[in-house]
Design a protein around this nucleic acid. Structure first.
Lengths: 242, 242
DNA sequence: AGCAACTAAAATGGATACATTAATGAAAAG
DNA sequence: CTTTTCATTAATGTATCCATTTTAGTTGCT
């Protein structure tokens, strides 16, 4: 087995490593994923690598054709926009379900997360060292609501949609702090609606919250295409257990 | 390789066969899927079988734990109900998207499918030999709308949700022909709304169309639990290429 | 007699060797 | 000179073998 064994199976570490390589853009979309060279590169045999590629196929990062191997999946601009619509609908449904099912613990954690966001945004802007905590808070809020919905499919499907480039809610344009403020105000309202048991209202806010963020991001990238490069800086710590 | 080679790979036929066995209920939910015995039973080696089990895991029929093997996934009644809510939301979104994107060909196929349903329902009831054509028509309408939405995720996610027992739109209570009539009237209205470009209206009807069907099915199964047995009679010809 | 620890058997995870299919390039014919 | 066909090469798909982990059974101790 590989030297760096952290308790998990070789297949799982291979999945994580190839996944990161793809998300970081080290392998271009459409590019072939040679089994032999990749296995050598990772220092493992083809067996666990094939399992990893299969896993990535089903999490939507890789495409496959019989006897013709695996490729990094590529997405059209339309597909990218559509993926956000689907995610918005799913997270809105999560709000509806969570409103009647959320536990007191989860609700209070949501409220403290919102309060944490307030502290990070104190002074009107975000200091660079607050970027990572803010992004983590954002991710955690969304995850927690999905978890409170107690629907395995919502979490699973949303996780797959997060793999679509430019669709992840982990991409934040840090310099646009007015937008960030508005976005965090949405968080306030969503959590308040959930606390009040008003799932429909939480869902409405969530839907707009997600769709606008994507729309704004794409608009800005059209204006200043170089902003995309910043995305690669953000380290990836999201797991993918399908 | 196995004797019955129809052009596809061993992994693919193994996936299909295990999938059918699970959907037919030949392997009970929660039951272990022994790799050695299953491979022997199928007359193949463990390698393609493991690939098949991994595929089924990611299509949601099988669960997996490291070093502890695969099991037939089991679903709680709540999960079953929730899965239909998710599907309803996804198919409603498909309507919204399809309304502006559907091609003339797809639209006319939808209209002829609705007309076919009218012919099958002539006389107020369904003859037994019309059951299969009616179910296929129903499935095709839903598939066609998803296809017209041009969103790979919607089709993919809905396909996974169809694997949840009692959630498939291929289950029809044939003796309740009044319900079938109402359901087909929904088809009329959905297609008409799509033709008129009114995606919101099509979405509303679709959502109710799906949620009610499930609600009614579960209610009837509570009254006469033996009706569930009929499900197994319906042959399965839906493919799962993820 | 009950519980714990150790041992053996069986099942899963991974590596290697073999078979089959697709891709590439060269050679021959039009 | 282009095109088609055939042969070679390389990559994927499958089978078998080995390693590691889990689990069940048994034995010994309290």
């Amino acid at each position: 087995m590989s030297d760096s064994d952290d308790g998990t199976t070789t297949t799982e570490v291979a999945t994580a490593r190839v996944r990161e390589a793809i998300l970081r853009g080290e392998i271009a979309p459409g590019e072939r994923l040679h089994q032999v060279s990749l296995a050598q590169q990772l220092g493992i045999s083809r067996t666990p690598l094939r399992a990893a590629l299969l896993a990535l196929t089903h999490s939507g990062l890789v495409s496959y054709e019989s006897n013709r191997g695996y490729r990094v999946r590529e997405f059209s601009p339309t597909q990218i926009r559509d993926s956000v619509l689907v995610r918005a609908e799913l997270e809105a449904l999560a709000c509806k379900l969570a409103a009647t099912r959320i536990s007191a613990e989860d609700l209070s954690e949501l409220q403290s997360l919102v309060a944490l966001g307030d502290r990070l945004l104190q002074g009107g802007t975000l200091r660079p060292e607050s970027h990572a905590p803010y992004r983590d808070m954002n991710v955690r809020i969304h995850q927690l609501i999905q978890q409170a919905a107690h629907s395995p499919w919502i979490m699973d499907f949303v996780a797959r949609l997060q793999n679509v480039p430019l669709s992840s809610d982990r991409i934040v344009l840090w310099e646009h702090w007015d937008i960030i403020h508005r976005s965090h105000d949405d968080h306030h309202r969503i959590v308040a609606a959930l606390a009040a048991g008003d799932g429909e209202r939480a869902a409405s806010i969530m839907r707009e919250h997600i769709i606008f963020a994507q729309e704004y991001l794409l608009r800005e990238l059209n204006r200043t295409p170089d902003a995309y490069a910043r995305r690669a800086d953000d380290k990836d710590q999201q797991e993918d257990k399908t």
